[in-house]
Design a protein around this nucleic acid. Sequence first.
DNA 1: CAGCAATGTGAACCCGGGTTAACCTATTCT
DNA 2: AGAATAGGTTAACCCGGGTTCACATTGCTG
Lengths: 205, 205
Amino acid sequence: MAKSDELESLINQGRKHGVRKRAILLAAARLFVERGYVDTGIDDIGAAAGISGPAVYRHFPGKQAILLALVELSVERLREGTQAILADRERDPRESLSALVDWFARSSVENPDLNLILQGELLGLPVGDQRRLTRQIRQVREEWVGLLLEARPELSDLAARIAVTSVMGMVTPVLAARLSGDVRTLSVHLKAQMLAVLHVRIEEG
Amino acid sequence: MAKSDELESLINQGRKHGVRKRAILLAAARLFVERGYVDTGIDDIGAAAGISGPAVYRHFPGKQAILLALVELSVERLREGTQAILADRERDPRESLSALVDWFARSSVENPDLNLILQGELLGLPVGDQRRLTRQIRQVREEWVGLLLEARPELSDLAARIAVTSVMGMVTPVLAARLSGDVRTLSVHLKAQMLAVLHVRIEEG
DNA sequence: CAGCAATGTGAACCCGGGTTAACCTATTCT
DNA sequence: AGAATAGGTTAACCCGGGTTCACATTGCTG
């Protein structure tokens, strides 16, 4: 219930969706995560949203559009969250980095569906959207990289990119594994691990 | 070329594949990684393997069977590599852990295709195989967890599982990002990061 | 040489699931 | 009220791509 509420609030956030539309997005998100995009039929989505079959087309132009909406929501959240923390130019880089990681771990764990869809189902989209969204994600990554380089100027660009990529990606497998831990424990551990990766010192060999 | 050779040697390893069969596996692996399983047609696979279309069915019972063969190859490699290192009961847990991480990082980076397919395209398989393979992977994970718990008895089972899951999953996003670094640099950095995660100390909050 | 197994090919098949069509019921607006 | 609009329903469509068919060709083997 907590998960759904969380996702629901996120979907509601952008006010441009009607109530049925939101129900569809909610249902689709759950199904996409459970069975995957390809194995989820339009009829399934409709059924899970209380209507049946082609009625979905009154709200979305097609199946891909639903996936696209979810992925864009996810990317949007990522961008906004990052921006919000980077905008606070009071903190020093170290603090910002910690805040960023904290926010990322928490929001991902509290709302795993969007994260999992974003990671796993980009392939379901037309290549054009795929590229656009990938570019946006890379852009966010570069902001993290920039921040990390401020905090640790001794790192090479490549080293920073590897670290950030790992960090942004290490949450997903944990979510996918559905370990038994509660939200709090999971995010605490993840945060600590992410910071460890960002602060690790490499001895060249 | 290095990548293909590497994968080729892996495929050749199990001697049960004929030359054409191997060519098909090789071609399919590349295509699956590039475009994804669903967007790769049987005709594409055939063409990439030098034959065209339905000739593939002389070697495999169907498209899924190709994917299955690749995924099983990948799981097999994972199990064997893990076993090989765990079998050496001379080393202390710390050393074994380090060796495990080293092997995993290196082999994943040197041969990204199998890793990426394993992570991304499990959904293409029938649920039965999906479950079986997931179970096998979880089993390997539990061996890592056991080793980690030997090395750090103060950890809870959950904490160890979170750490191991992160560690095993953090390689994939780096591979998928296709960062500019060479094989050596990538695996060195990844190894250091993985060890950092395994050795991080959690302060309870 | 006859025969048969192995391997290819292009054409045909076919079917699941996304989409569209045709039609029905509210509710709202003039 | 009458019309337009929003939102649903079931039945039909249809098409892409995995699979199957019918038919070469080659190479062994008896």
